[in-house]
Design a protein around this nucleic acid. Sequence first.
DNA 1: GTCTATAGAATGATAGAC
DNA 2: GTCTATCATTCTATAGAC
Lengths: 205, 205
Amino acid sequence: MVRWRPVTTPLGSASYSAAQSRIIEAALGLFAEHGISGTSLQMIADAIGVTKAAVYHQFKTKEEIVVAAAEAELLRVEAALNAAEAEKSRSRAREVLLERAVDLAIERRRKVSTLLTDPVVVRIFAKREPFRELMGRLSVLLIGGDGGGAEARVPAAMLLAAISGAVMHPLVANLDDETLRSQLLRLAHRFLELPDSRERCPPNV
Amino acid sequence: MVRWRPVTTPLGSASYSAAQSRIIEAALGLFAEHGISGTSLQMIADAIGVTKAAVYHQFKTKEEIVVAAAEAELLRVEAALNAAEAEKSRSRAREVLLERAVDLAIERRRKVSTLLTDPVVVRIFAKREPFRELMGRLSVLLIGGDGGGAEARVPAAMLLAAISGAVMHPLVANLDDETLRSQLLRLAHRFLELPDSRERCPPNV
DNA sequence: GTCTATAGAATGATAGAC
DNA sequence: GTCTATCATTCTATAGAC
């Protein structure tokens, strides 16, 4: 079993109580529907049938809920990455990561995307080293290289954005999950399997 | 000059006064920084040095501002699409569209993306026929087909999401515009120039 | 862990003078 | 077109009882 990086770095190492998990789950749904700022603590409290004060007893501020919700989703990404990195070969690892990433995007549909494209959340996480490292590992596994160069980071960013962004795109709004899943996987492969394009083979007739 | 669709359908046909344009411009910047719900009318008013009442004199509700701002950005997309569709050949049209789309994404960086991934805005525009038609035209020009099938809409959604999503991705946060631009264009080509992948040519040695 | 009750600020929106 | 002033509502957050 070859690992090119140690399987470590739990993002938040966060372990939440049942009450906290219920809040996070409700928040994720409401964020996806109304946006983050558009979701109030009152709405979250109503969704799980308690009062605001009960929510504040679990999280000191609204931002703590937002971060916890985002971390919960990122933990799924990290789990997929860990599983992938534990594979024997690098190509097999990349395959596993792709499948898991597409599954995650489909399964959670807009839940994740909405949360992780919010400008405030982006700013919060962009500063955190564990998050940056997670993104670096994704880039390395998807594209290769040392993960530091533009030649690796741009395609990685594009592929990740393509997968997570496509599932909430109006163009595919009324496509069933299974079709979307197989198409996404097929096209992600297509994007990856041509290391350097143009003059590899003659244009089709 | 061959057109495969008439160059028409102005999205909003909206013509705004100078005062309205200043509001829209300020709103776009604030939306990108704080999100839409995170931006209050007070913040918009402060940004241009007037009172809330003055803003309300131009737009009856906050939602009107949001829609106007989104439409302003979509008009840029439509302009690019119109310019592309006016090209002689289809391949040349696609090339022009790609360049313009990448330029738009870079130039506006997160301004557009933040606005058009907001769940509330997505819901508003997903219902509007002119918007759906614009997306359809983009899909047809980028991928081909009649624009109705999953085989065309999924790759179109992916490519559009990849371009507009990559520019605000943490992985490329500290890349200069010129590098990002050339990489995006190169990779968008790579994504497109392989109509149906695998067995077109033997794997590289 | 959950509640009632409330403080204090900010929100979207309106009326009417200039 | 912009202002002052104000409305009702909602917001985040806290105090203290059970």
